[in-house]
Nucleic acid binder design. Structure first.
Lengths: 106, 106
DNA sequence: TTTTTTGATCGTTGATTTACGATAGAAGAT
DNA sequence: ATCTTCTATCGTAAATCAACGATCAAAAAA
C-alpha cells in the first residue's frame, strides 16, 4: 500500500462525524445503516451527512446497497483491517529496534 | 481517547509528506532528524517542511530537541502506539461478531 | 397519476490546508 | 563584531474541506 493511499484513508477517517457513521452503521441491525439513521443521530443536515458518506464511499470504507427507496451502507471491515495492517507495518519499520535490518542477523 | 482526538491524529498522519518525515526521522542516526534532513530528501521548500513538522509536533507525534544551531525531532512511538490501540479498539467495537456484547456471555 | 419518502447532487460560503518566498532570530564560526 | 547556517514564522495564493439550503430523481404509497 502506497503512502498516498494510506494518507487518503487516514484523511477519510480523520473526522469525528465519519467515525460516528461507521459506528452507527455497525450498531444498526445487520450492520447496515441508511442516511436517515445518521441524520437522526447527529445534529447535521441531510446533505452534510450524505457528503460524509460519499467520502467514506470513495475511500472504499463502506459500500452502498440500494434497498427499496433507501440506500444501505455496509462497513468494509476488510478495508479497515487493511489500513490497520499498513499502519502496523509502518510502525514496525519505524521502531528503533530494527532501523534497517542491515546488521546483526545472527 | 475521544473521537475528536483520534480524528485529529489521523488527520495529522494523513499526508504522504508527514509519513515520510516520520520515516526519515526513524532512519536517521539515533532516530532523530532535523528540518534540513527532510528538506534534502524531498522536493519541498524549507518553510513547507517546517510547517509539516509543526503539524506533527502539535499532534504530539514528534518532539523537538534543540541541539546547537539545529532542532532535532524525535518520533514519539508511544503516541503512535496509542493511536494504534485506539484504532484497534474501534475496529473491535465495529466487528459484527460483538455488536454490543449484550448477549451470549457463556 | 399524484404524493410521499429517501437521498444524491449542485451551488455557495467560510474555514482550513498546502505550498511558496521573504524575513527574522539564535547559535556557531571567522 | 560579522558572517554563515539552520529553522521558525509571516504573509499570501490556490486548493480542498465542511456545512448549509435548494433541487432533482427514483421508488413506494396513496
Amino acid at each position: 500500500m502506497r503512502d498516498d493511499d494510506i494518507a487518503t484513508l487516514l484523511r477519510a477517517l480523520g473526522h469525528p462525524v465519519r467515525l460516528n457513521i461507521l459506528r452507527i452503521s455497525a450498531t444498526q441491525q445487520q450492520g447496515q445503516c441508511c442516511c436517515a439513521d445518521v441524520t437522526e443521530s447527529l445534529p447535521l443536515a441531510q446533505s452534510t451527512v450524505s457528503q460524509h458518506i460519499k467520502v467514506l464511499l470513495d475511500a472504499g470504507l463502506i459500500t452502498r446497497q440500494p434497498r427499496g427507496t433507501r440506500n444501505c451502507y455496509i462497513v468494509q471491515h476488510d478495508r479497515l483491517a487493511e489500513l490497520g495492517a499498513a499502519y502496523s507495518g509502518m510502525l514496525a519499520g519505524l521502531t528503533p529496534a530494527s532501523p534497517k535490518l542491515e546488521a546483526e542477523p545472527a
